[in-house]
Simulated assay, not measured.
Amino acid sequence: MVYSTRYTSPLGTITLACDGEKLVGLWIEGQKYHGGTLSEKMAEMNDVPVFDAAKKWLNRYFAGHKPAISELPLAPIGGDFRQGVWNILCEIPYGEVITYGDIAKKMAARMNKESMSSQAVGGAVGHNPISIIIPCHRVVGANGSLTGYAGGISKKIKLLELEGVNMSRLFVPAKGTAL
């Protein structure tokens, strides 16, 4: 059984999902792939300890603190490749960004391959089921372009600004498929 609850954030309503013990989802209202990794419908249940912990984590995060990802029990649903990409996302420090290409290089090294497709990495990043906590918003294009955030580019910008990222070299592309 998958349980859900809602959290009101500065970005809008967030849906949290858990398996009863671990967080399996966090989606911003209107986000692409909302609930996409779940094989069953969510049943609303607000009184679950992991939801209380996640809401406290989010309160601290939106207040400008830097809570550790390890404070929460996470269980994102996905295959080995996606799990590997999501693990790399968890290594990106607050206030910093990484490119899809950098993640591809790290994944290639971890898989003992010469190279890895940045597009494959982009697909895994885009399907991250635990947004904000697993910080997919910290991934940018090689040229500093702010593409590819399933929650929307304006929300990505707000999250990066909240974390104190130097935005001077980053920009919103005029056109593209990942806006």
Rank of each mutant, 00 (worst) to 15 (best):
L162H: 09
A178F: 15
F62E: 00
G12E: 12
M45H: 09
G12A: 05
V85P: 07
S4Q: 14
V85I: 14
A68P: 12
A142T: 00
Y149N: 06
W86V: 01
G152F: 03
H65E: 14
P135Q: 07
M45L: 10
W86L: 15
K55C: 01
I153S: 08
Y7A: 09
V48T: 09
G20F: 04
M167I: 05
L159T: 01
E29P: 04
G84M: 13
G78C: 11
T147I: 02
P49T: 00
S9E: 14
K106S: 11
T15Y: 05
E44I: 06
L23K: 12
F62L: 08
H127D: 13
L160R: 08
H137M: 00
S39Y: 02
S131Q: 14
A178T: 08
E44V: 00
T5S: 15
V140I: 11
L162K: 05
L38G: 12
E91I: 01
C18E: 08
T5D: 15
E96D: 02
G164V: 02
R60M: 00
G12N: 07
A54G: 00
G164P: 03
E21P: 06
F171A: 01
F51K: 04
A43C: 05
T37S: 15
H65W: 02
V165D: 02
Y149T: 08
M116F: 00
G141Q: 03
K175A: 04
N112I: 03
I103A: 03
G164N: 02
V125K: 11
V50C: 15
A53V: 01
A104P: 06
S39I: 06
C136H: 04
D47H: 03
A174C: 10
C90A: 14
